[in-house]
């Protein structure tokens, strides 16, 4: 017990407190100036925009993937089921490396996509691709157990009352799936906002165009602009905390119908 608290405070609380204390030494206008430079604003915009898009893609395709994996039997199902965790297991640097290569003009996918005008490497789209990759397991893995334990009886009951498949899905299944999908969405979104390794390879990090907020923090550090880096970090931290709270609230809401 004591050990737990001690370890936790040394490793987590002290560093966070240190960061905040440092930033609180700044006056509000100073902080505001550092945290909202044009370059920073562009970076926030890209980070949140791309994260949101990636989380949406994951919500849609993750739901589909979870549904297909739980409900249908088809060749390769087990392989894909095992591979869903691959983005968790693969170091982000490797993910960025291979995705950048896949979507580059001479890559396996890029050679078909680039002539069509779909450029993955060094564009905001590339950022979305990388963030979709790293966030993919969240929706699938939060939804899968819920789908597995979903009461088939409920669907059959709807059928005996005359409801067709689509109607059953919309009014009986979807309300049950919505909370876990939203939790998965929020988790993927939170992860995407902080993501660094996979993005820096594919985005090209062009200031105000494809530069994400975490990368800008690294740049500020390399310029020895510690305060600038910290101001940005505090913005990201506050958002992370807010998301963490949101996820917890979501999970409680998701459980409201059980028991």
């Amino acid at each position: 017990m004591g050990f737990t608290l001690f370890y936790l405070s040394v490793l987590v609380l002290v560093p966070i407190a240190g960061l905040f204390l440092r930033v609180f030494q700044l006056s509000w206008p100073e902080f505001w100036k550092l945290a909202t430079t044009d370059r920073a604003l562009a970076a926030y915009q890209l980070t949140f925009g791309a994260s949101l898009v990636a989380a949406f893609i994951n919500a849609i395709f993750g739901t589909l993937l979870a549904w297909v994996l739980v409900r249908y039997e088809f060749p390769g199902r087990r392989l894909i089921d095992a591979l869903v965790d691959f983005p968790f297991a693969l170091p982000t640097a490797v993910a960025g490396l291979t995705l950048a290569n896949l979507f580059a003009a001479n890559g396996w996918l890029g050679q078909f996509l680039v002539p069509l005008g779909i450029k993955g490497a060094f564009t905001p789209l590339g950022v979305v691709i990388a963030l979709t990759f790293v966030g993919m397991p969240f929706v699938v893995r939060t939804l899968q157990p819920v789908l597995e334990h979903l009461d088939r009886d409920m669907e059959e009951a709807a059928a005996t009352l005359g409801a067709g498949r689509l109607r059953t899905f919309v009014s009986v299944i979807a309300p049950t799936l919505l909370p876990p999908v939203m939790t998965g969405f929020a988790l993927a979104f939170a992860r995407a906002i902080g993501e660094y390794g996979s993005v820096v390879f594919i985005s090209g990090n062009i200031p105000k165009k494809t530069e994400i907020a975490p990368y800008l923090i690294v740049i500020r550090l390399e310029e020895y602009d510690y305060l600038g880096a910290m101001a940005l970090a505090v913005v990201l931290l506050v958002i992370s905390f807010a998301l963490l709270v949101a996820i917890n609230v979501l999970e409680q809401w998701a459980n409201r119908f059980s028991r």
Partner: peptide, 8 residues
């Protein structure tokens, strides 16, 4: 058997 009421 388990009633299968619509929970939502």
């Amino acid at each position: 058997q388990g009633y299968a009421l619509f929970k939502s």
